[in-house]
Nucleic acid binder design. Structure first.
Lengths: 194, 194
DNA sequence: GATTAGCTAGAACGTTCTATCAAATGCTGA
DNA sequence: TCAGCATTTGATAGAACGTTCTAGCTAATC
């Protein structure tokens, strides 16, 4: 009962934040999207919108963090995995008609200067994501500094490509960005193999 | 008189949108930041918040568009110009304690699915920016498709790096991303020179 | 059966939002 | 100096916001 309602609220928040941002999404809209009674929001999240948003960020972070193993585990190498991740993201974006990208970036830009606990929550998710990617690139033989730089760039490039793709309603942006990241990883791997 | 007030309002909107986003910024806050009487907002922008936001986006687009000649005109080559642009951006971000990045991305993520005229305005600015960069990379001898891909990636990478840098309050992200873009442009130039 | 805890349900509250409006003030040109 | 236009001024209205509150229902436990 309750657990299902709570999860539905988090998921609805995630969807709406990514489509219309944090401040542009009201609690009543989240309740409606979750098909939950309005009072249940504060029952499950007594800390209010901030607490719900923190949970949304952490939950989204787990989903995005799981994308690394999904693309990197079976790939011939990390350059190909990188490209596949971007292609997968482009496909997902097309499938939802550019409505859904990443709720974390949307929230991050709004709260970075105004809500310290939420800024920290977004920073933590990004750091975790970068950490997972860095490990993969290191595991492929790249020096820690190079691996870290590529990981940071992967996340930056993908989040930025989402912005452009959503603005222009064109997923080719994400694929183009993926090609550049593919070549960057490819070049780093080749250089490390010398 | 009036022209100065109008410009102050646009500038205040730009600053506040980049710090707290579109929906999180109220018109009274803009008026206060602009030191303008509240009613003047609707006098100058009878279309309301949407009209003001459109003007903010276009004005910011002009500022950002001017960054391309600023970094590319005097640089030894486009790879170095690319790196310098990212370093300049990192510096700017540090100077304002991570408060001010780009108002266009902040607005774009909020309006992409909910406000078509503003989505188009953001798309237009990004397209113009990408166009300017593409011309620079083409002018350096790169094939049109490669130039376009690098330009798209430049803008994506920079906007994404802003997200991460603001979330983590660490401008090193922007510099790392700039190194990857530098190497990508370098490699493309070297390949085109063969 | 009585009690308790969890969840649902939605009204009410105070605040903030966007937009409108009428009046006042200032500036310019005839 | 005066009229007309531009700009300023700030109160007001209605809607939406996040939060709180009360009441009711259900299931589990004693």
């Amino acid at each position: 009962m309750g657990a299902a309602t709570r999860e539905r609220i988090i998921e609805a928040g995630s969807i709406l934040f990514r489509r219309q941002g944090y401040a542009g999404t009201g609690m009543k809209a989240i309740a409606a999207a979750a098909q939950a009674p309005f009072g249940s929001i504060y029952h499950f999240f007594p800390g209010g919108k901030d607490e719900l948003t923190g949970e949304v960020i952490r939950a989204a972070g787990r989903v995005y963090g799981a994308l690394v193993p999904r693309f990197f585990d079976g790939a011939p190498d990390t350059a190909v995995a990188t490209r596949c991740a971007f292609r997968g993201a482009a496909e997902t974006l097309r499938d939802c008609n550019y409505a859904d990208a990443c709720p974390i970036a949307a929230v991050a830009l709004e709260v970075a200067s105004t809500n310290e606990p939420l800024r920290l929550a977004t920073a933590e998710v990004f750091a975790h994501w970068v950490g997972g990617l860095t490990a993969r690139y290191e595991g492929a033989g790249l020096a820690p500094a190079v691996a870290h730089r590529l990981a940071v760039s992967f996340v930056s490039m993908l989040e930025g490509a989402f912005v452009l793709a959503r603005a222009s309603k064109n997923a080719q942006v994400v694929e183009d960005a993926g090609e550049i990241m593919f070549e960057a990883v490819r070049a780093a791997l080749d250089k490390a193999a010398e």
